[in-house]
């Protein structure tokens, strides 16, 4: 075998040995615990700080609004869909205010006329013709909207 080929094979053997050593030491402990990923990734992800709470948590303090909402068309719309993530607010209400969107454009995100949206489930209006310039909440209570 020619000298340069021998030397190359040696260099490759050294490289492969280094890779095997690195593989031994650097492969995460929980690799392949369940499948082709780090098993510990699951606990890391579940350990992340929560951002959202559920409607029941909101109802603990805002029971009047929650009661109003159960009778209206927005019953299935979670509070945080309009008000944003509420974990911090629930944890420390004095220092973490939530958003109260009042502008017309906000409601139109769901309720503007859109042929691609299911019209029998989400009520839609023509934003140009329907009381242009008025805020929606002047007539409609977002917690118990009427038609």
């Amino acid at each position: 075998m020619p000298l340069q080929v021998k030397r190359l094979l040696l260099a490759f053997a050294v490289f492969i040995a280094i890779m095997l050593v690195l593989k031994y030491f650097l492969t995460p402990d929980s690799w392949r615990e369940y499948g082709a990923y780090r098993g510990k990734a699951l606990t890391e992800i579940s350990g992340k700080e929560a951002k959202y709470v559920e409607m029941e948590t909101c109802a603990e303090c805002h029971d009047t609004i929650a009661g109003l909402k159960t009778q209206g068309l927005h019953v299935s719309v979670q509070c945080e869909i309009c008000h944003g993530p509420g974990y911090k607010h629930a944890d420390d209400p004095d220092n973490n205010d939530l958003e109260i969107p009042r502008e017309r454009q906000f409601c139109l995100r769901c309720h503007t006329k859109n042929m691609a949206s299911p019209q029998d489930i989400i009520k839609q209006i023509d934003a140009v013709e329907h009381n242009e310039g008025e805020e929606c909440i002047t007539c409609h209570n977002p917690h118990q909207p009427w038609l």
């Binding site: 890779m19 690195l22 593989k23 650097l26 492969t27 995460p28 690799w31 499948g35 082709a36």
Partner: peptide, 15 residues
């Protein structure tokens, strides 16, 4: 990033 090189497997095209 090096985990890409030391944990290859055959269940994903990217891996």
């Amino acid at each position: 990033f090096y985990e890409m090189l030391i944990t290859p497997h055959l269940t994903s095209a990217m891996a």
